[in-house]
Design a binder for these strands. Structure first.
Lengths: 188, 188
DNA sequence: TGTAACATTTACCGATCGGTTAATGTGATC
DNA sequence: GATCACATTAACCGATCGGTAAATGTTACA
């Protein structure tokens, strides 16, 4: 199997897991949906868990890349970028395929902190927090670490609620919440 | 099976699903963990889905009851109660059994909005929002609906992150975020 | 054209899935 | 003590679980 074919497999597995859930999607169905036979899959991934970890690594890279690029395209100034995070989020919520966050779902299904899948989800959030912190510092926030933590909480809450309630309304509410927190972090 | 025995079954099933996940816990294992035979379970619940729904109804009632009582015990004044939500949350996070929110997990595993389990999770969050809104009104917030929506976002985000990162730190951060939002909603 | 290397398919493994059937207790009523 | 209603157990159903072995292409080079 070529490297590109392998990437394609991981990408398709990612979509299948995202849509269906990790436990709910079996390897037989995965083989059917990806068009790669089960034996061929197991040539490259020793277990289902390893395949899941590969999809999570891909998703982490894709999502953080997308968010950073989108944020920077929406606003040049660091302080505005902090708000633009929530404009990008709103765009994501409106995609028809949106079904919450892959890592929240992963941590829901693999709850043990010692489990590699759970740990990968935790790491994804840590990397987002680091990115937010960096931007808050550049923007000159009074307490950049604290502001970044607050914004991450708002982001995660918005994702959860966008998946359950009216996503448009939630996106607006999250943006307004972020604005309020950012303002508070610069004033006074 | 007596009514109390049935309640006990649902309570034990709730714990099993909460700890293990809905797809991951099979009916055989459920029978073993609850001490009620599979046949006896199916005498009272036509499908696994119905049993899950029963556990969610119980959890909804238990959680909202606990939160309201705890919040009222922690603070007499409505405005202080809005902050006390996050003190209660911090207590919850420190329980050794804490493993995120049952309804976030339910919506992670049952993603279709039309699915009864997903709908039940959405309803739980709606009821929480209604309670927050009521308190915000009593407290005299400028825009009670908006403030309640913001606080709910913070609550959900805090739960997700408390499950992934240091729960104590997240609880502190969430409380501080809530304070900032509440202050902003009364000032100006 | 023969053959070695690799990828893919088919069939299968024991275990478990959600759910059911038939047999076995068990307790109250007559 | 016989009988009837009910609760429980054990055994079983076809389907699917994660994972593997053996057979069957397919391709590249000699």
């Amino acid at each position: 199997m070529s490297a590109s074919k392998r990437d394609e497999l991981v990408q398709k597995a990612l979509q299948a897991f995202y849509r269906g859930g990790f436990h709910a999607i079996g390897m037989d169905r995965l083989a059917k949906e990806t068009g790669v036979s089960k034996t061929a899959i197991y040539k490259h991934f020793r277990t289902k868990e390893e395949l899941i970890l590969a999809t999570l690594r891909l998703r982490d890279e894709q999502f953080r890349n997308w968010l950073m690029r989108r944020v920077e395209a929406l606003a040049p100034a660091p302080r505005d970028q902090l708000i633009a995070i929530f404009d990008a989020l709103a765009e994501w919520f409106e995609e028809p395929e949106f079904k919450s966050c892959m890592f929240i779902k992963a941590s829901s299904e693999y709850q043990d902190r010692a489990h590699p899948i759970h740990a990968t989800a935790a790491e994804h959030k840590r990397l987002l927090l680091a990115d937010f912190t960096e931007r808050a510092k550049k923007a000159g926030a009074k307490e950049p670490e604290a502001l970044a933590g607050e914004l991450l909480i708002v982001k995660e809450g918005a994702i959860v609620l966008a998946h359950l309630h009216d996503s448009n309304q939630v996106a607006q509410m999250a943006r307004r919440t972020a604005e309020s927190l950012i303002n508070a972090s610069f004033d006074g």
